[in-house]
Amino acid sequence: LVRYRTISKIPQITLNFVDLKGDPFLASPTSDREIIAPKIKERTHNVTEKVTQVLSLGADVLPEYKLQAPRIHRWTILHYSPFKAVWDWLILLLVIYTAVFTPYSAAFLLKETEEGPPATECGYACQPLAVVDLIVDIMFIVDILINFRTTYVNANEEVVSHPGRIAVHYFKGWFLIDMVAAIPFDLLIFGSGSEELIGLLKTARLLRLVRVARKLDRYSEYGAAVLFLLMCTFALIAHWLACIWYAIGNMEQPHMDSRIGWLHNLGDQIGKPYNSSGLGGPSIKDKYVTALYFTFSSLTSVGFGNVSPNTNSEKIFSICVMLIGSLMYASIFGNVSAIIQRLYSGTARYHTQMLRVREFIRFHQIPNPLRQRLEEYFQHAWSYTNGIDMNAVLKGFPECLQADICLHLNRSLLQHCKPFRGATKGCLRALAMKFKTTHAPPGDTLVHAGDLLTALYFISRGSIEILRGDVVVAILGKNDIFGEPLNLYARPGKSNGDVRALTYCDLHKIHR
């Protein structure tokens, strides 16, 4: 019993810090008490220290592992850092350059016999395009090294910054494609005289377009951006097909006994025919423009016929181009109408809503002055909100995010209106959640004399007048207030005048 009563005193000691020596009952000389009392004092002292730490809000209350900052290894790049964003855009520009100039170089340097010394005699450094290609190869190699040090988000939505895990993730992902696209074939085969082989191998750079397509997928929600990307894709495919079309004609031209190829026909049409040795002929500019003209006309199913396939190889390629053109029509131009419709969806919704308003007016036989006010209010409210119901949009977000959005939407009023000066951010967040926005066209009466005042109004834009009878008592403008002081009276009061809008007004109100 003594032991039980001794232990039962522990909660009292913990909360009230009572010393055991003052209790005459606990001072009985028993061996059990002498053993338990020192333990009680020690526990009391420890609990006292913990309570003191909690009340003082000291940093040592938290466990040590929670006080440590997340460790980022040296030379690790955050995937959302500004440097990584700028670097990704730079790589994107280099990939676009590669997609345009690599097929052009591979096709127009394929057994090209233009006048001038061969590239091997001039030297590697004197070729501007080769120098640019070398810079692109170096940048792609540097990009691989950067990807080995860039964080990523795993399946659990955690940012991984450990170098080993980053390397394994990159090896399992895009490393092989990036490595093949970054191989400097110019340096590996330079001086061997195989410019045709170098041009063909350099087309491996186009593998990076797969990554670019995935990154550009984030802009699919913007109709104008999608339309622009589709047109660029169409032009890029036409450019690639033009390079292939020229390569076919250029390879067949020296081996044909009869002059029936499209390059021969082009030379005869523009007065620059090929001679018996295969030299001469149109310039590279004429060849490229004509090839691009043929691919565009074939892809769009126009086909004027002034550039036509004559050999079997050219006919087979033309059939493939027609098939590609039909697929592009289905996948690209078939979506253009939907994209344009999405661009004008706001206008369509406006006309639909206006039609419903006019049908309501016609069905209920609203008189002319009231009908005009109804239409003007709808037009003004639509121009202010673009038909978007803010309350319906915010309803799907958590309250903390709703408060931040409301604070942002009402920031101008909260910053410049005098009653809100000096208020804490928590108070402003709470008030912003209570605001209701209303609009009024010129001549609209917001409050009639004798109406119950259940709200306090803040003028965000425009001006109003307060009338008693036919006498203008006051004219209020931006950041002015009218209405009933909230919670100042037990019952809502009545208006002693009319409140009429002089201009288009936007008002925020808080109800009782």
Rank of each mutant, 00 (worst) to 15 (best):
R165S: 08
G123I: 05
R429M: 01
A291S: 04
A119Q: 01
H239P: 01
G249E: 01
Y104G: 01
V180S: 07
L187A: 09
A155I: 14
Y104L: 01
L93P: 01
N312G: 01
S220Y: 10
R358W: 02
K84V: 03
P398K: 01
H351A: 05
D88F: 01
H79C: 01
E376T: 14
I189T: 13
L413E: 01
T311F: 01
T295M: 15
L414N: 02
N265R: 14
F304I: 03
A440E: 04
L279G: 14
F171R: 01
C243T: 01
T424Q: 13
R259F: 01
Q365K: 12
C243S: 01
E121P: 14
D444K: 03
L263S: 01
N250M: 13
G325Y: 01
S383A: 11
I284S: 01
K215A: 04
L176K: 04
R373Q: 12
M179C: 14
F378Q: 13
N391W: 05
I248G: 01
L343S: 12
L401D: 03
I91S: 01
G422S: 10
R429V: 03
F296G: 01
K172G: 05
G278T: 01
H264C: 03
K287N: 01
T150I: 01
L200A: 04
L414P: 01
F234E: 14
G223C: 11
M433S: 06
V168K: 15
C243D: 01
P442Q: 14
C122H: 01
G261W: 01
Y104A: 01
N312A: 01
S161R: 08
W89F: 02
K84G: 01
F108G: 05
A330S: 01
D444Q: 07
L207V: 13
R371W: 01
Y288G: 01
K202L: 01
V160N: 01
A182E: 05
A403R: 04
S412F: 08
I91N: 07
L90E: 01
N154P: 03
A392W: 04
V357Y: 04
Y65H: 07
R356N: 13
G305R: 02
L409G: 02
N386H: 04
T113H: 11
S192C: 11
H264Y: 12
L414C: 01
Y384P: 03
H416A: 08
F296C: 04
R371Y: 01
M328F: 09
K202R: 04
L94S: 13
P128E: 03
V447S: 02
D217G: 05
I332P: 03
P163V: 06
V212W: 13
V307R: 01
F360Y: 03
S283H: 01
C427H: 03
S194T: 14
T438F: 12
